[in-house]
Simulated scan of single mutants.
Amino acid sequence: MVQSGGTFLTFGNSAWVIAPVLGAFFLTNGSFSTLYFVSAVAILPITIILIISLRDFKDPEYHSEPYWRHLSVLWKDRNMKSIFIIYLLLQFFYAWMVIYTPIYLHETIGFSWETIGILFSVMLVPFIVLDLPLGRIADKYLGEKELLIAGFATMGISTGLIAFISDNNVLLWGLVLLITRVGAATVEVMADTYFFKKVDASSIYLISLFRTVRPLAYIISPVIATILFVALDIRGLFIVLGLLMFYGVRHSLALEDTR
């Protein structure tokens, strides 16, 4: 189960590694208009594949229940509540890092967009190379709980360090950003695996709620950052985010291990 989930995430995350390099190339040799045009063109074959492959697909019959009842069931289950909070923290981390790291690197540290694109591609390599090994480790040696704790601790320490680095050494930044994503990759595959071990096809409402966590994080994270900017600068955001990741350690400890 863990390994199949890791394989799925590996394929999906490959695009995140390739995209920053291509984005940096188009921004260096063109403009944002070119970048968005290429992105739009890239969606066309995907749309065609979906239309062809899902031509005969039929949705199963779903039984609708009040939304509040789903939340009530979720909140009463300690493990489900903790894994939802863990996933929310992970998506919150992604949202803040995606929005504010490029701005910080470009405006404060002084890196070019081309350099930032390369840094981001290197930074995202753990999502490709670690997902499958992490699955095997979770299956044979450790449970998801232990790896979640290690992942959040790694994210917390490395993210907090970003605020204290003012040097524009590319290798240093590449290393620090890489470590943040080692932690994030660990949390991502373990959170997904733990959740899907706890649900089945009849838990469609929980799966739907789980998938709404990502857009929710991308909605609330800029709002919270805007409020924090009243008292903090952009460096302070990384300190807050690092501390917030240790809250994930607390909820990881609360999980009942599946191994």
Rank of each mutant, 00 (worst) to 15 (best):
M1P: 11
G5M: 12
G5A: 08
G5H: 02
G5Y: 03
G5L: 08
G6N: 00
T7F: 12
L9W: 03
T10H: 03
F11L: 13
N13K: 03
S14E: 00
A15N: 03
W16R: 06
I18N: 00
A19H: 04
F25W: 11
N29G: 10
S31F: 12
S33M: 12
T34Y: 02
L35Q: 07
Y36G: 02
V38P: 04
S39W: 07
S39V: 10
A42K: 07
A42W: 01
I43T: 14
L44R: 09
L50P: 00
I52L: 13
S53V: 10
S53F: 11
D56N: 15
K58I: 06
H70W: 11
L71Y: 05
S72V: 09
S72M: 09
S72W: 12
V73H: 13
V73E: 15
K76H: 14
D77S: 05
D77K: 03
K81A: 15
F84W: 04
Y87W: 11
L89T: 10
L89D: 06
Q91P: 03
Q91M: 14
F93L: 01
F93W: 00
Y94V: 11
A95P: 12
M97F: 14
I99W: 06
I99V: 13
Y100D: 02
P102W: 08
Y104E: 00
Y104R: 00
H106D: 15
T108E: 14
T108F: 13
G110I: 08
F111E: 05
F111P: 01
E114R: 14
I118D: 05
F120V: 03
S121T: 08
V125Q: 04
P126Y: 06
I128C: 04
L132C: 07
L132H: 09
P133E: 05
I137P: 10
A138G: 00
A138S: 09
G143T: 05
K145Q: 07
L147A: 03
A153W: 14
M155C: 13
M155H: 05
G156Y: 11
G160H: 12
I165M: 05
V170D: 12
L177Q: 08
I179T: 10
G183N: 04
A185H: 02
V187C: 08
V187N: 04
E188M: 13
E188A: 12
V189I: 15
V189T: 03
D192P: 02
D192V: 02
D192H: 00
T193H: 07
F196S: 01
K198L: 02
V199Y: 05
S202A: 10
L206G: 08
L206H: 13
F210Q: 00
R211A: 13
T212G: 10
V213T: 15
Y218Q: 01
Y218F: 11
I220S: 10
V223E: 06
I224G: 04
G236T: 12
G236S: 11
L241I: 14
G242T: 05
L243K: 09
M245I: 01
F246H: 11
F246Q: 09
Y247T: 15
S252C: 07
A254L: 00
L255K: 01
E256I: 06
R259S: 10
